[in-house]
């Protein structure tokens, strides 16, 4: 996609949009920019609280499980799969946009369907990960007593290890910073909600494509706008992945 504009063209002389995009697309961009600040505020508040703590759980210890592999220690493996699914669905989305530029209805239908499949796969992965964290019990030393805690918004079993103290073959830890669960579930939940609404929007676009609405309209710009939203969801994941799993 490229735009040929004569050299020295006066965009601000009036009588036209100086941005050369439709109103709807421009507003989608501004909406995404405001959403960037919402996510940015969440992630920065998380970073601030994390900075203010002397101890913070190592993500490699918290996120080391993979469905079907039991208690095998596989740090980062599952979240890599989730990241790959989201990048892949971003590619299928941009392919749908590409087919839309060429007014190829069949192509748009095919790639939109794959994008929806990718979105649902990501949501399924997230559901598994949340369930695993909320139901996985870990021995924690609280007031000199060993208690079983799971990762929730009110409990964090991922504190520093108690040297030499084992419980049924597991290293006993102290309670970690309480804020960990709230930030993790809050921010990944907010992102997951965006993925969910993106899947719904993509589903509506697929139905409208099948009904031939965009052929009647003469352009597939709605696919582009839905695409902008979907890529934004992928973009946010880049930073959620960075802040919660990598650093």
């Amino acid at each position: 996609m490229s735009t040929t504009v004569p050299a020295g063209y006066k965009w601000w002389s009036g009588g036209k949009s100086p941005f050369n995009v439709s109103y709807g697309k421009l507003m989608m961009w501004y909406f995404l920019m405001s959403d960037t600040f919402t996510f940015g505020a969440f992630l920065i508040s998380y970073a601030t609280i994390r900075m203010s703590q002397n101890y913070w759980p190592d993500p490699n210890h918290v996120f080391n499980a993979f469905p079907g592999f039991g208690h095998a220690n596989l740090p980062l493996a599952f979240v890599s799969l989730m990241t790959f699914i989201l990048i892949m669905s971003s590619v299928t989305m941009v392919l749908a946009v590409h087919e839309g530029h060429k007014m190829n209805r069949r192509g748009v239908e095919k790639w939109m369907a794959w994008t929806i499949v990718g979105g649902l796969a990501f949501l399924a992965c997230q559901a598994w990960e949340w369930t695993h964290l909320i139901t996985g019990m870990h021995p924690v030393l609280v007031n000199g007593q060993i208690e079983e805690l799971s990762t929730t918004v009110t409990g964090n079993p991922w504190g520093a290890a108690v040297p030499g103290l084992m419980h049924e073959g597991h290293q006993v830890l102290t309670p970690g910073p309480i804020a960990f669960g709230g930030f993790f579930f809050g921010i990944t939940g907010f992102h997951g909600f965006h993925v969910f609404s993106g899947v719904v929007i993509n589903l509506i676009m697929l139905i409208k494509t099948r009904l031939g609405h965009f052929d009647q309209r003469g352009h597939y710009e709605m696919i582009e706008k839905a695409g902008l939203y979907w890529h934004f969801v992928d973009l946010v994941w880049v930073f959620v992945f960075l802040c919660f799993y990598l650093v």
Binding site: M1, S2, T3, T4, V5, K16, S17, F19, N20, V21, S22, Y23, G24, K25, L26, V91, V94, L95, H98, H101, K102, M103, N104, R217, G218, H219, E221
Partner: peptide, 26 residues
């Protein structure tokens, strides 16, 4: 096909030329 490409809105002064292939995407 894209010679009959309809400009999506009156705000667009210079329409975008669709990419020839998907090379850049991959």
């Amino acid at each position: 096909e894209h010679s009959e490409h309809v400009v999506a809105s009156p705000e667009i002064t210079f329409p975008h030329e669709p990419a020839a292939n998907t090379k850049r995407i991959w």
